[in-house]
Design a protein around this nucleic acid. Structure first.
Length: 270
DNA sequence: CCGACAACCTGACGGC
DNA sequence: TGCCGTCAGGTTGTCG
């Protein structure tokens, strides 16, 4: 899944088959994912033309010429399959365009979601109201982070995973960014110097940009929207590398925080 | 405020 | 071959 770079890559991949195309078929194959599909999804999307594409945090956005925005979240295992040929058991939403292109939202674990809101109400969408700044936008900077983390005693890792602080980071890229900056994941967030926060912001930007550049994730069941496996050489320095040697000469360790694996190097992350 | 934990689901993998 | 335990990118809520 899908952290920010994978969602970004997905949205970019949806553009060619969908941009300017009218939907001739909108079919839900079951009633719900994490939440029920909007009951009027089919009625509002069928016949509509897709005119806009976007992303907010880990949510992908498809805008129609009727003033609606379909908001999808890929959860842990979601991906779009383009022209899949056959509809599979986990293809829960199927779109077809006036050109005969087929797009299937496949999500085995069903932690994802699909919502439909009026574009003018987008900012009021509950999941968007409390989101922090986009990490690739200028609103995220050392000054913002210093203010947001001031006085916080929670770990920096927990804070970076909190979508209200920064929107779109997940377990992998938080581990990677902290490693790149040499900050221990358990460090109290409010005690990190401004200088290190500046460097952390740079690392976050760099790791996300590199992942988008690489075409998204390299995780085992992630597929690019065209259905090709987006499986390239892993470039993570710590994630999933427990026991391997760090380039500083130390060894990558793994521990569990809040039920989630944290990969880090105890030697170069202090 | 904070950390821990469970719940929501299926699939992949390793060990035996 | 198969069975069983463990683990997985996220979000949301509860508990102490």
């Amino acid at each position: 899944m899908p952290e920010l770079p994978e969602v970004e890559t997905t949205v970019r991949g949806l553009r060619p088959p969908l941009e300017g195309r009218r939907l001739t078929r909108v079919e839900t194959r079951r009633a719900d994912l994490r939440r029920p599909f909007p009951p009027d999804l089919r009625q509002r999307m069928t016949g509509a033309t897709i005119i806009g594409f976007g992303r907010r945090a880990k949510y992908g956005l498809l805008e129609t010429d009727r003033g609606d925005v379909m908001i999808f979240h890929l959860g842990m295992s979601g991906r779009w399959r383009i022209d899949p040929g056959e509809i599979g058991a986990h293809d829960h939403l199927v779109l077809e365009t006036d050109e005969g292109r087929v797009l299937a939202l496949c999500d085995p674990r069903r932690f994802g979601s699909v919502d439909l809101v009026r574009k003018v109400d987008l900012a009021e969408f509950p999941a968007f109201k409390a989101l922090g700044p986009e990490p690739l936008e200028p609103e995220l900077n050392g000054g913002y982070l210093a203010r947001a983390l001031e006085g916080r005693t929670a770990s920096i890792k927990a804070m970076l995973l909190d979508q209200r602080i920064v929107a779109g980071l997940g377990n992998i890229y938080v581990c990677e960014a902290l490693h790149m900056t040499g900050i221990a994941p358990g460090m109290m967030a409010g005690r990190i110097s401004r200088k290190r926060l500046d460097r952390l912001v740079d690392a976050i930007r760099n790791v996300l940009a590199a992942a988008i550049e690489a075409g998204g994730s390299t995780l085992r069941d992630y597929a690019r929207p065209d259905g090709e496996l987006g499986y390239f050489a892993k470039q993570w320095l710590v994630y999933g590398r427990e026991g391997e040697s760090c380039r500083c000469g130390g060894n990558v360790a793994r521990r569990v925080d809040g039920g989630r694996s944290t990969f880090y190097c105890p030697k170069c992350q202090k």
